[in-house]
Amino acid sequence: MSAAPIHLADRIELRRFVGRELLLWLWLETELFEATLSTKEHGQFGLWLEGRLVLDEGKESTVIKGSAPGMHREAKEALLRGKTPERAGLHLSFGDHECTLTLRGETLAFAGLVPPRKTREADEPPPLAAPPVRRKKKRDDAATNDLAHESFYDRMHFARDVEALTTALYRDFLAVRLSPAWDAHVAPALAAWVAGEDVDVERYRAARDKAIARKPRG
């Protein structure tokens, strides 16, 4: 990164908008690619906007709720009025995971990420009533502790999986955003998409794939 004599806090603040553009790009791609995205590490997976979409500019904000908030006319109108996505509810379907979360653009922080219930435990019928066995308190405490630890590790592993996915998406976004393809192909596609005009999806896909596949130069 640049070694310009700017304080880290200022550099962070000056590039907050890039996170909003990530949300905008994801929104565009979920619509163009019919909610099927892909990364090199994850292959194809499902991703679409769901729940709450918040767009703002200064003090004005637009909140759209629903199963497909990005499809609302109001959402695109907000973009045309200069608002950008501040946070977006996402539905993810990757690997064995199916989950929803809210991704905040300026901090890339997650909200409302719910780990999937353990299917094995959830599907298992309750054990047949056996005669109650009175266990010693110490053993009960240890068992409770083990369960709490297991649940903690499960949640952390799940969080890491989702973070790895969003990081891969952000890396691909940066590859496109910081390449000439952004001005040449993505920005015109965004403008057409917001205006409700047709976008040449295959042409767009070819340009973004080329930018993502480009080998980094030292």
Binding site: M1, R15, R16, V18, E106, L108, T167, L174, L178
Partner: peptide, 12 residues
């Protein structure tokens, strides 16, 4: 975490 720090970690 922020878009800036995430970009720095990814490496440009």
């Amino acid at each position: 975490e922020s878009p800036y720090t995430a970009a720095a970690r990814i490496g440009l």
